[in-house]
């Protein structure tokens, strides 16, 4: 299915795309058909800087279990630093 549901997060940091490193300003998170991953649906994250054009994008397509594991790892790691 195309869920259409999209969460947008404003963020700061950097990402590395085809042309090298660039500053990030936003991410979109959605559960939908992947472009590349070999499954019907994935949790997709696009790290973006719209001001630099559509090619300024770092994309991942994760199976739902992997996405949850990643989210827990991020929260655990950030929690250790606080």
């Amino acid at each position: 299915m195309c869920t259409y549901e999209t969460q947008r997060v404003e963020l700061s940091g950097s990402g590395k795309g085809p042309s090298g490193w660039f500053p990030l300003s936003a991410a979109t998170v959605y559960f939908d058909h992947p472009v590349h991953a070999p499954t019907e649906h994935t949790l997709n994250i696009d790290f973006l800087n719209p001001g630099l054009g559509p090619g300024s994008r770092v994309a991942v397509e994760l199976d739902p279990g992997s996405a949850c594991a990643l989210a827990e790892a991020i929260l655990a790691m950030v929690g250790k630093q606080e």
Binding site: T28, D46, P50, G53, G55, R57
Partner: peptide, 18 residues
């Protein structure tokens, strides 16, 4: 309009973000 000349997946991501 959102993504002239971009790869289709990049263009779709840009359109979705908007």
């Amino acid at each position: 309009r959102e993504a002239p000349g971009a790869d289709p997946d990049d263009a779709a991501a840009a359109a979705r973000a908007q």
